[in-house]
Simulated scan of single mutants.
Amino acid sequence: MSLFWRIFGLNALVLITATALLLGPITVSTPVLVTEAAVLTAGLAAMLIANAALLRVGLAPLQRLTRAMTTTDLLRPTARLTPGGHGEIAELITTFNTMLDRLEAERATSAARALSAQEAERRRIAQELHDEIGQTLTAVLLELKRVADHAPPPVGEEIRQVQETTRASLEEIRRIARRLRPGVLEELGLTSSLKALAGEFSTPGLTVRAHIDAHLPPLDHNTELVLYRVAQESLTNTARHAGATRVDLDLHRTSAGVRLRVRDDGHGTGGAAEGAGIRGMRERALLIGADLTLAPGPDGGTEVRLTIPTHSGRP
């Protein structure tokens, strides 16, 4: 039975019952007596209450569906609604669940393509920085050294200052290239790359400590890359915005897989909206079926936690 006919039938049942009562034990005099007016008023109130209760019960699944529609976020998959009600309502909820499945699958596919293209572009830019600009600056350093060796002392000192500036620029370019393309991840593995990342972000004002489990389960290349990028983005956000003095980077084995945790002692997010960096981490997590949470740390600051299920994650 359609929603229209169900609502119509409920209203008709209430009205037919009221009419039967008026034609049976309840009658109305002319003029209307006070007791009869009271009975009619009570009957009308009972009909309205019964109608409202029946409609609320019948339309409750639609209210649940409305709440789900307003709170659904494709970057935070949740359990699907259980089809409730009858007829069109149950069919509508089932269709909504199917639509969510399709949207999440399509988003995952498009995100995978976009992130794959992004990684390829990062590798290309890093290679050009290393091969083109890096080699050019190296040649400039050698030429400056040759000129400084033959220049008068005052001019030679100025040239050496230019040398130091050029050398600092070359180191910065190499640092950017390493961030764009984590060659250490491909050459030395995940553990060494995360320790190198912690050392790179450690400064006199910020201490980054890495604690890596020595017995991690086997992880494929995409999973290792997601772990590295999430750790890198978390440390970047901490260094830029958190005002922290200490960061703990932990990667350990769990009963179901592995878990990455980056915790700082900064001032937290302050309820600010998530930026592109955090949404990018969520998209990467979805690609490998991982769960990413961002919450205040137990002692203040912010804690980023990435939980990755693996088939080999047995203790």
Rank of each mutant, 00 (worst) to 15 (best):
M1G: 14
L3S: 05
G9E: 15
N11I: 10
N11S: 10
A12N: 15
L15V: 13
A18F: 15
I26A: 08
V28D: 08
S29T: 11
V32W: 09
V32A: 09
L33W: 01
V39Q: 05
T41S: 05
G43D: 03
I49C: 08
L55F: 14
L55W: 14
L55Q: 15
L65A: 06
R67E: 04
T70L: 07
T71V: 11
R76E: 05
P77V: 00
R80S: 11
T82C: 02
P83N: 09
H86R: 14
M99K: 03
R102L: 13
E106D: 03
T109H: 02
S110W: 09
S110I: 12
A111N: 06
A120C: 01
L137K: 00
V140L: 02
V140A: 00
V140Q: 07
L142I: 11
R146H: 13
E158A: 14
I159V: 15
A168D: 10
S169V: 13
I173C: 04
R174I: 08
R175F: 00
I176F: 12
S192Y: 00
L206P: 02
V208Y: 12
V208Q: 02
R209T: 10
P218N: 11
N222W: 06
V226Q: 01
L235T: 01
R246M: 07
H252P: 05
T254P: 11
D264L: 02
M281K: 01
M281N: 00
A290Y: 04
D299N: 06
E303C: 14
R305V: 13
